[in-house]
Every structure is written in C-alpha cells, then in structure tokens.
C-alpha cells in the first residue's frame, strides 16, 4: 500500500538568483474558455532549457504591472517550451491575457514541491481536478503517459462549472480515445447540448475504475472540493497517506521568506504547493488558518 508521507515530495534544485525574473518570449496565447487561457513561452536564450517537476509553479511578472504565482501546465519532457494556464482574476492575469506572440514576460522558478509521480509507479493513478485545478495536473498526465508501462490504471476525474469551462478540450478528446486512460468529466450546470455527466466531481469517485487499495490520488481544485474529495476517496478505500493535494495562498517571494503563504506550520510556496493529505488534514477544516 502506498504511503506518500514516507518520502519527501519532489523538489527541484535551488535557484542562484531566486528573486530576479528572467525574460521569456510569448510564442502563442491560446484561449481555453471565456476566462482562461494558456501561454506558451520560450526562453530568450535559445539554448536555455526549463526543467521542472509536475506540480511546481513559477512567479510570472508582467513588466511594470506585477507578479503572481502560476502553476506550470506543460510537458516536463519538453523543456524548450514553458506552458502556463491560468484564469483572469486580477490585474496581472488580465494583463497576461492580453499578451500576444512576441511579447515578453518575466519568469522566476520553478518553485515548490511536485506531485508524487514516481511514488505512484506500480499503482493506479487517480487525478481529481476541479476547475482550473486541471492545469497543474496536466504535467502528471504527460509524465505518466510518457512512461505508461510503469503505472496501473490512469483515471482523470474532472469537474467544472459548465461545459464551456472545460479546459484542454481537444486534448481531453484525444486522450479519451486512448484505451489506457480513463477520463470522466462532470459539470455543475449542463445545458441541453451537454450529454455528459452533471453533478459534483466527488460523485464520480465511487464508480471510477481503479483499485483503491493500490492507488495514488492527486487532487487539485478549490479547497472545499479537495476536502470532500479526500473524504470520498477514503470512503472508497484509498488511504489518507496515498492522497496528495495542491494548495493555493497569497505569495510574494515563493522561497519561504515573505510569510504570506503560511498555512499552519507550513509555507505553501516551499513546503508545498503539493502536500500529502495527512500533512494538512488537521488544518484544512479550521477557519482562517
């Protein structure tokens, strides 16, 4: 049975100059939905490779506007390209959504812990994503599919607001056609054109095809969704220490020195964002931690 708490979660090498943004050029901006978009970035220096582990994030800086943490949504096996997917929620993401090919933005990172992708080898892999929470889980799909033989079943359970909000739609369709990957999507509100599932993502857990006793679950979405997902996974028989979650808090430095992202005894930026469920369990139900 898998126990993620035994091994520390993956992290990358430390950076020489962690507070200094490096300019990257926008190669492509893709609209995912009315309020989400994906940026494909290339290092200005052509030989530069950007390596990261799935689950890590970068601080993205728009010249003169500001800087925010954004998870990496691209393929870890393609280090020549850096991919971020985010939602327009504030002034920086708004400015980011208006970038065009050729524009430049600053990148600091990668920071934080990664998903337990290597710990999950030999196990069924259950990804539970809510809303924009699919973005930081996509690198796990790239990574596990690149080494498909190392894993048991791979199942993605994805819940979102409405059919229009589904991220990476084309890619999901493509993946869905594979026989070695199961994808279940559910929406909170479906119109008459939607023939898929309607209901919360937790509802998909009891029926999802995986061996709960030999599964690693990776969960990313709003905190309430993650709490209920962890409970539902455990009802199904997944052990608490086989569940990993990714947390979000205000971040300014991303290196554990500014204090903003403190959550109980952890700093989300350096001790997380990916945690095992037992690391957070006692704090998750508390208010205003």
């Amino acid at each position: 049975m898998i126990n993620l708490t035994k091994t520390p979660l993956m992290t990358q090498k430390q950076l020489a100059n962690p507070m200094q943004p490096e300019p990257f050029r926008v190669k492509r901006v893709m609209k995912e939905s009315y309020d989400t978009f994906t940026l494909e970035l290339e290092p200005i220096a052509s030989e530069r490779l950007f390596t990261f582990v799935p689950g890590q994030f970068n601080m993205l800086y728009i010249f003169g506007v500001g800087e925010i943490p954004v998870s990496i949504s691209g393929d870890p096996n393609q280090p020549a390209m850096l991919v971020h997917t985010t939602r327009i929620v504030g002034s920086v993401t708004k400015a980011m959504s208006k970038l065009k090919a050729g524009d430049v933005l600053g990148v600091r990172g990668p920071f934080g812990t990664g998903w337990p992708v290597s710990d999950a080898e030999g196990c069924d892999v259950i990804l539970v994503a809510g809303g924009i929470g699919l973005a930081p889980l996509r690198p796990v799909l790239y990574q596990t599919l690149a080494h498909r033989d190392r894993y048991g079943k791979i199942v993605l359970l994805y819940g979102t607001r409405s059919p229009e909000d589904i991220l990476f739609r084309k890619e999901l369709e493509k993946w869905r056609a594979r026989f070695d990957l199961e994808i279940f999507v559910t929406v909170d509100y479906g119109d008459s054109d939607w023939h898929g599932n309607v209901g919360v993502v937790t509802k998909l857990i009891p029926k999802a095809p995986f061996d709960a006793l030999n599964a690693v679950a990776m969960v990313c979405g709003p905190e309430v969704m993650m709490r209920f997902t962890a409970i539902e996974l455990q009802k199904r028989g997944v052990r608490g220490d086989g569940i990993a979650l990714s947390m979000e808090r205000n971040m300014k430095c991303a290196i554990g020195l500014c204090g903003h992202c403190q959550f109980g005894p952890t700093f989300i930026c350096k001790d997380g964002p990916v945690f095992t469920y037992p690391q957070l369990q006692s704090w998750l139900a508390q208010w205003e931690v």
Partner: peptide
Amino acid sequence: QTRLQVLKLYD
C-alpha cells in the same frame, strides 16, 4: 452533492 454544487466553487 447538491450543496456542493450550489456553492459555485469554481467561480
């Protein structure tokens, strides 16, 4: 489930 659904968690 309905309670979670009406929370509009993803907004």
